[in-house]
Simulated assay, not measured.
Amino acid sequence: MQIPQKGIKEDAKIFLGNREENGLINWDKIEEPSKSLTPYPIKFISKNRFWTECSENYGITTDTLKNKRYNYFGNITDFENTLLATKEFSDRFSATCWKDVLNIYINNLDKNLWEIDELAVQYFIKDSIENVNYHLTHIPPGPNGGPRTKIQIEANESILKDLKEHGRWTIELYKKFASQKLTKIDTSRIINTTKLKELNNVLITYDAINFGWINVDFFYEDPKASPTKLAVKTSAKSNLTSLILEERSVILSGIEKSTNEYWFTKNEDGYNKLPKGEKAIIISIGFDNNGLTFGEKVIIIGENEEETVEVKPISEIELKEKLKKYGS
């Protein structure tokens, strides 16, 4: 039994239940959640699922002409089966996506994840202090060197307030990450890198779909959209689950909420609208050491709050052909 919740619960526990003869369940055993990490194909886990200011593939590249605002010079695939190839690190990068923070993790891959989190906390403390002190000591004079105006004073106070709040937010976030005490890659789950070539070829085809990538707030002011819940359950783990609206030439990425469950809308206002009555296609792509998996389903948005997609093994050639039909 799973009970969804928002955010990270620091003292999370797993209760194991035994059904007794009278039908009641006795939750008498407690199991600590695993602290080790599961690696994913790094091009999957580092791929942006929606429009964001964060760099694709963590900003790791050797093509500095195409990617002028890169974070690290190198091949992203060199980090297969490292902490960078985990969902946990992807969550951290998505939260801040700072070059300096990325390099803290890259330079300490031999450590436990929680130890690197603590190094990041120290970085954010130092960065916050330096930023605040700079704006406390570098105060521009008023017009013609005279007293500062009320607008200047208020602007400086606003900057200081924002810097303090953002600094506090990042520090507390990474303290919470560190409190999870996550360790290292589970060596029993290492990915067979010889199988990753076919996956990378599929991703090239996937990226070539000539549609626009959107966030769910895209539909906020759309007169044809209304509050809608749309969740997808897949029969097996999916690394990419997307909603394709061919008539609009857009793609919306699903947000993983629990095991094999992905949501396309949120509960918050502005993030809960979809165009009801329109046809859409759900596609799910997965990968494990046995190879590629794929599932697709044509739906009418609004008919069901939850859709089920059966995911089956598929060859690289077959999957590339299926993906090519979208946007063609």
Results as ranks from 00 to 15, higher is better:
164 K>E: 12
327 G>M: 00
234 T>S: 06
131 N>R: 10
207 D>L: 02
127 D>N: 14
326 Y>T: 01
129 I>S: 07
114 W>H: 13
213 W>I: 12
260 N>M: 08
105 Y>K: 01
235 S>L: 12
213 W>R: 13
200 N>Y: 15
94 S>T: 13
122 Q>P: 02
270 G>F: 07
270 G>S: 07
106 I>V: 07
298 V>E: 15
216 V>W: 06
80 E>G: 04
15 F>I: 08
263 W>G: 04
173 L>Y: 11
133 N>C: 04
193 T>C: 00
73 F>P: 02
184 K>F: 04
114 W>A: 09
38 T>Q: 00
151 I>P: 02
224 K>S: 13
1 M>C: 09
63 D>H: 05
226 S>A: 09
65 L>Q: 09
178 A>M: 05
262 Y>S: 02
47 K>I: 04
131 N>L: 11
212 G>R: 15
92 R>Y: 10
273 K>L: 04
53 E>Q: 14
27 W>K: 05
104 I>M: 04
303 E>G: 08
231 A>F: 03
165 E>M: 12
146 G>H: 09
304 N>E: 15
167 G>F: 10
30 I>E: 13
317 I>P: 04
5 Q>P: 11
283 I>V: 10
305 E>V: 00
171 I>L: 05
190 I>F: 00
193 T>E: 15
199 L>W: 00
93 F>P: 07
207 D>K: 08
68 K>H: 14
294 F>G: 01
64 T>F: 04
67 N>P: 04
32 E>S: 14
320 K>H: 04
309 V>N: 00
16 L>P: 02
36 S>N: 13
42 I>G: 00
290 N>E: 15
